[in-house]
Design a protein around this nucleic acid. Structure first.
Length: 527
RNA sequence: CGGGACGUAGCGCAGCCUGGUAGCGCGCACGCUUGGGGUGCGUGAGGUCGCGAGUUCAAAUCUCGCCGUCCCGACCA
């Protein structure tokens, strides 16, 4: 049975109760206070009334996240530990992300492919670092068709090996290069500690794989795709990110250099939102991916790989979400606009729906992703809250008074309460809405960037670093030594997130050992 | 893998200590009411009490074992 669901609800109950106490007074919280007062009089059972409220982020960020994913119907726990089921609303968001990314991949000459789920165990063993990195988290198939397999198969944790194997057959000449491929799939890594979207045993992603004739070209590809991810995060997901280089301790097993984009979540923790690896010749040597160059010399290819996963769904939740629930960036939102009809009598219902359906068609025609909430039995107020929780960027409230005036109320999700509401005429609603959506997109990004800035500190010494990573990023000089990095991690639980590619060129003293340091790095506690 | 919590209706819980006909709320279905910020009332459907042994006339309840989930840590491109 759903034991997984029980515990969060236990704490949620408490959380809901505490939320009643902690929430500052205001119009929209009046109900909560009323409930709380009743609770005091009538006993704990009436807490049930508050059960569909979220905990606040300040009170329990982790619980807020867990609840929200389930309540907004983005995903649910699968019957297998650590696995998730992505529900239609969550998958619709992922599909929009896929499209936004796929566009960029195609524009830079990549083609989509599909490699198999099962990989011979021996393939993993061929690249030394890769084995070390992945062995503990492999799922292995040993029986097929009721028979013990001669060679165990692993469920792909990533596809470098099998792709390398095939490339060795396909690539012979410099004329065959570059090879620019990408695949959308899922991979399995046996993680010990899981959280919906952020770390699950199986997760959905894309993995790009490319092979090049020269180191320079492969390095340029690595950076190009890192930039594509950054552009996607900033312009489509409205998430400001820091592109940078990983330390040896944090890089991908098998890569020469790993780059990532790092984002700050609403609790000040860091999340690696995409990675791009320069693999050097590690895999081409292990799998003998070779080509004959213009001079008739046999050369090993230079390869790259890069990936971005459904983890970014988690980032969108944790960056933009507020105490009312999700806030979807308009460019990726499954629904950009929801129309909530308001009526009393059957006659009103008829005219309101007529106008609402017409409006929906017009918006759809203007390429706005719109839904009309035709559910029976729920009051408009209930629907307002429901769609706010689900993060729809813009709500259109349409009632008899509006139809009479040929106008509608627009409510912005990013500006809660009455301030976010304006009246707009029906005639030019599509234009007004398109403009508003762009505004919301921009304001989400700006707000997230302002938040990151205010929680990032140029920590000049170790004490300042310790303080900074309590609830944000420390941006500090680092000498580059693994020892300093390890000590910092051990003593503060903060890891070296990345060395930002953009540096101001100054040099200083390592935040830990005070030895000369040439570049600054981001340190933070991370998901 | 260590520490903690838990598993009873779709969901959240009570019942267990002290064994004796399985309960409450939400949700769901139906009806009325209400509807511009989480309406109110009534009626109704819904459960192998995680699984397996044991003790007992009798087990949701006591004993043992197993399985599973969540949280904290360790671990984690």
């Amino acid at each position: 049975m759903g034991g997984e669901a029980q515990n969060y609800a236990v704490s949620f109950r408490l959380a809901a109760h505490l939320a009643c106490v902690d929430t500052p007074p205001g119009v929209r919280y009046a109900l909560k206070f009323t409930l709380h007062d009743e609770l005091q009089q009538t006993g704990p059972d009436d807490l049930l009334m508050a059960e569909d409220k979220l905990p606040t982020r300040a009170q329990d960020f982790s619980e807020w996240y867990n609840q929200l994913v389930l309540k907004a119907q983005l995903a649910d726990y699968a019957p297998v530990r650590g696995c998730m089921i992505v529900r239609p609303y969550g998958w619709a968001l992922w599909e929009n992300m896929q499209q936004a990314l796929d566009r960029r991949f195609k524009a830079t000459g990549h083609q989509n492919v599909a490699f198999p789920l099962l990989i011979p165990r021996s393939f993993i063993d061929k690249e030394k670092h890769h084995v070390e990195g992945f062995s503990p988290e492999l799922a292995v198939v040993t029986i097929g068709g009721g028979e013990e397999l001669a060679e165990p198969l692993v469920i792909r944790p990533t596809s470098e090996t099998i792709i390398g194997h095939m490339w060795s057959k396909w690539i012979q000449s410099y004329r065959d290069l570059p090879v620019l491929m990408n695949q959308w799939n899922s991979v399995v890594r046996w993680e010990l500690r899981t959280k919906l979207f952020l770390r699950t045993l199986e997760f959905y992603w894309q993995e790009g794989h490319t092979a090049h004739a020269t180191r320079e070209e492969a390095e340029a590809e690595t950076i190009q795709m890192l930039n594509a991810y950054a552009d996607f995060a900033i312009t489509d997901a409205a998430i400001p990110v820091i592109p940078g280089k990983k330390s040896d301790a944090e890089k991908f097993a098998g890569a020469d250099v790993t780059y990532s984009i790092e984002a700050m979540m609403g609790d000040g923790k860091a999340l690696q939102a995409g990675t791009s690896h320069f693999l050097g010749q590690n895999f081409s040597q292990a799998f003998e991916v070779k080509y004959l160059d213009q001079n008739g010399q046999l050369q090993h290819c230079w390869t790259t790989s890069w990936g971005l996963s459904t983890r970014v769904v988690g980032a969108i939740i944790m960056v933009h979400g507020d105490d009312q629930g999700l806030v979807m960036p308009p460019k990726l939102a499954p629904y950009q606009v929801v129309i909530v009809p308001i009526f009393k009598t059957d006659e009103e219902k008829k005219t309101v729906f007529e106008t609402a359906r017409k409006l929906k068609a017009e918006l759809a025609k203007a390429d706005v992703r719109v839904t009309l909430d035709e559910r029976e039995g729920q009051s408009p107020g209930w629907k307002f809250n429901d769609w706010e929780m689900r993060g729809v960027p813009l709500r259109v409230e349409l009632g008899p008074k509006d139809v009479a005036k040929q106008s509608a109320i627009l409510a912005r999700r990013d500006r809660p309460g009455k301030e976010g509401k304006v009246s707009a005429s029906l005639a030019d609603l599509p234009t007004t809405i398109q403009k508003l959506l762009l505004e919301i997109q921009q304001s989400l990004h700006d707000k997230a960037l302002a938040f990151r800035k205010s929680n990032t500190h140029d920590a000049k010494n170790y004490d300042e670093l310790k303080k900074a990573v309590e609830n944000g990023f420390a941006y500090s000089f680092w000498c580059g030594s693994a020892e300093c990095e390890a000590k910092i991690k051990e003593e503060t639980r903060a890891t070296m997130r990345c060395i930002p590619l953009e540096q101001d060129g100054a040099s200083g003293k390592c935040v830990y050992c005070t030895q000369p340091a040439k570049s600054k790095a981001i340190f933070a506690r991370a998901y």
